[in-house]
Simulated scan of single mutants.
Amino acid sequence: MNSAVIVFPGSNCDRDVAVTLADVTGRAPVMHWHGDPDLPDDLDLIVIPGGFSHGDYLRCGAMAAHAAAMAGVRRAADRGVAILGICNGFQVLCESHLLPGALMRNRDLRFICRDVHLRVETTDTMFTAGYAPAQVIRLPIAHHDGNYVADLPTQCALEDEDRIVFRYCDAGGKVTETANPNGSLDNIAGILSESRTVLGLMPHPERLADPRLGGTDGRALFVSVMEALS
């Protein structure tokens, strides 16, 4: 599987993703600088990593959405290349209109950095086929703007089309307001595009993809993509 990680000024999870991709696929990803519009033609997966692209000036992901490389990402998405946006990458995908909705300030207006529980809402995706339906997993979050919002038609479309991939929940899998760390609409933690080839999520699967990191719940996401695309 050929993959690339888009690197912006302020990205700080690009190397984490690269290590995980190399470990899972046996092949190091291309580290693609944001100023270069010409991505390799043979890519199977493009990852937009977490961090603080362009220092989060204007809005999180707003400046990165206009980077030269994002034109290449859009063209790749149109061809059906798998796109994964993690945390700031999710924000960039929304700002680029590759995913609907927006990520706003957390409900309590504070940066949150801790592990959370997620319920896998659908396994009918190349990203989650390796999980069990309704499986509860643990992943870290680290964000100030993870409060997902969308208008009612978008919310209904996401629900009706089985495009809500992860929801924040408690350890028993119950979706509650208490388990919602940031005020996100309907406890949404990750969503798919209409094509089901673009996934954005706020939690960091790459940070729990190796036993040495304290857990492997995130590894199945990368294995799922590799198996789907290999």
Rank of each mutant, 00 (worst) to 15 (best):
V7A: 04
P9A: 10
G10M: 07
S11A: 14
N12A: 11
C13S: 12
D16F: 03
D16R: 08
V17T: 06
V19N: 10
V19Q: 13
A22W: 04
R27Y: 09
A28C: 04
A28Q: 12
P29D: 08
H32P: 05
H34D: 12
P37C: 11
D38M: 04
D38Y: 06
L39H: 00
P40A: 14
D42A: 10
L43F: 07
D44H: 11
L45I: 00
P49L: 12
G51C: 01
G51T: 06
F52C: 06
G55L: 01
G55D: 09
D56Q: 08
L58A: 10
L58Q: 01
C60V: 13
A65V: 10
A68Q: 12
M70D: 08
M70Q: 10
G72F: 05
R74C: 13
R75S: 13
A76V: 13
D78I: 07
A82L: 15
I83P: 06
I83R: 03
G85H: 05
F90V: 09
F90Q: 11
S96L: 14
S96V: 13
S96C: 14
A102V: 15
A102E: 14
M104E: 15
N106Y: 11
R107A: 15
L109G: 07
R110L: 14
F111C: 02
C113G: 08
R114S: 14
R114K: 15
V116C: 15
V116S: 10
V116I: 15
V120M: 12
T123K: 13
D124N: 10
T125S: 15
G130M: 04
G130Q: 02
Q135A: 12
I137A: 11
R138N: 09
L139W: 05
L139G: 08
I141F: 12
I141V: 14
H144Q: 12
D145Y: 08
G146I: 12
Y148M: 02
V149I: 03
A150T: 07
A150H: 04
A150K: 01
D151N: 05
P153R: 02
P153E: 03
P153W: 06
T154A: 09
C156M: 14
C156G: 00
C156R: 12
D160W: 05
E161A: 13
R163M: 11
I164H: 00
R167D: 08
D170E: 05
A171I: 03
G173S: 00
G173F: 04
T176Q: 10
E177V: 04
A179F: 00
A179R: 00
N182R: 04
G183H: 09
S184P: 06
D186F: 13
N187Q: 08
A189Q: 03
S193V: 01
E194Y: 00
L199R: 13
L199P: 02
P203V: 01
H204L: 02
P205E: 04
E206D: 09
E206M: 00
R207Y: 03
A209G: 10
A209V: 03
P211N: 02
P211Y: 08
R212L: 15
G214H: 09
G218C: 05
V225A: 11
M226Q: 15
L229F: 10
